Amino acid sequence: MEPANIETGELFTLQLSSEMESLTALEKLIEDLADKYQISEDTFANMMTCLNEAFINAIVHGNKLDVKKKVFINAEVDARRIIWTIKDEGAGFDYNNLPDPTAPENLENLTGRGVFIVKQLADQCIFNGIGNELELHFKI
């Protein structure tokens, strides 16, 4: 099967409630896009890890598990990459002043690695000014 020919790009969107069960819809979209665009296993695994982490952070830290608040997800696909945007309805956070999870004093911590992991696995990671929207780029 040939990869889809996308000159102008395609946009896929989800609007999910802030509950763990919503993760299933996001994972299905990732799987569907990986199939449709013949995405490599490595890129698929990186997308799945990053988007799971970003979504969980959005519902837990951003929307504080308020099921009335939504998480908005876009996937923009063109011939070279997928750009994912994840936005919550929270107040945001200071993404420039996070503790370094690789520092000796933080190695035993059970949390605090999410943003670090996402930055390592995505080709590009961009936060908006207040930190309630994340853009992740993956080459395909």
Rank of each mutant, 00 (worst) to 15 (best):
A4K: 14
E41F: 03
N46M: 09
I82E: 04
A91S: 14
P3N: 12
H137Q: 13
L26N: 02
D66I: 01
Q120D: 13
V71M: 04
N52T: 14
L98E: 08
A54P: 13
A34F: 07
A34R: 14
E53T: 09
A25T: 15
I140L: 15
E19S: 10
E108L: 13
E105Y: 00
K70L: 12
V77Y: 04
L26V: 03
E53Q: 08
P3L: 06
A103W: 00
R80Y: 13
I73G: 01
E133K: 14
M47N: 06
I56R: 07
K28N: 15
F12P: 11
D42S: 12
V71Q: 08
E19A: 07
D100N: 15
K28H: 14
T102E: 15
L51F: 01
G114N: 05
R80C: 10
R81H: 13
L26G: 09
R80K: 15
A75I: 01
S40M: 09
E10T: 11
V67D: 00
V77Q: 02
F44K: 13
T43K: 10
P3C: 03
E10C: 08
Q124L: 13
T13L: 11
A45C: 02
F127C: 10
G129D: 14
P99E: 13
E53F: 00
D78I: 03
F116T: 06
C50N: 02
L14R: 06
E133Q: 15
T102W: 03
N132V: 06
I30E: 08
A91I: 10
T111N: 15
K36T: 09
A79R: 11
T49K: 06
N63I: 03
K64P: 06
Q38D: 15
N132S: 10
P3D: 09
L134F: 02
T49M: 11
F127P: 15
V115H: 07
E108H: 12
N5R: 09
T24K: 15
F72S: 13
N106K: 10
G62A: 02
N106L: 03
Q124P: 07
E10H: 04
H61K: 09
E133N: 08
A4H: 04
A79H: 13
I59F: 02
E7N: 12
S40A: 14
N46I: 02
G62F: 02
H137A: 11
C125F: 01
L121V: 07
L26F: 01
T102C: 08
I82T: 05
C50Y: 00
K87D: 03
T111M: 12
D88F: 00
A25K: 15
V67M: 00
V71K: 08
G131Q: 07
D94M: 00
P3S: 12
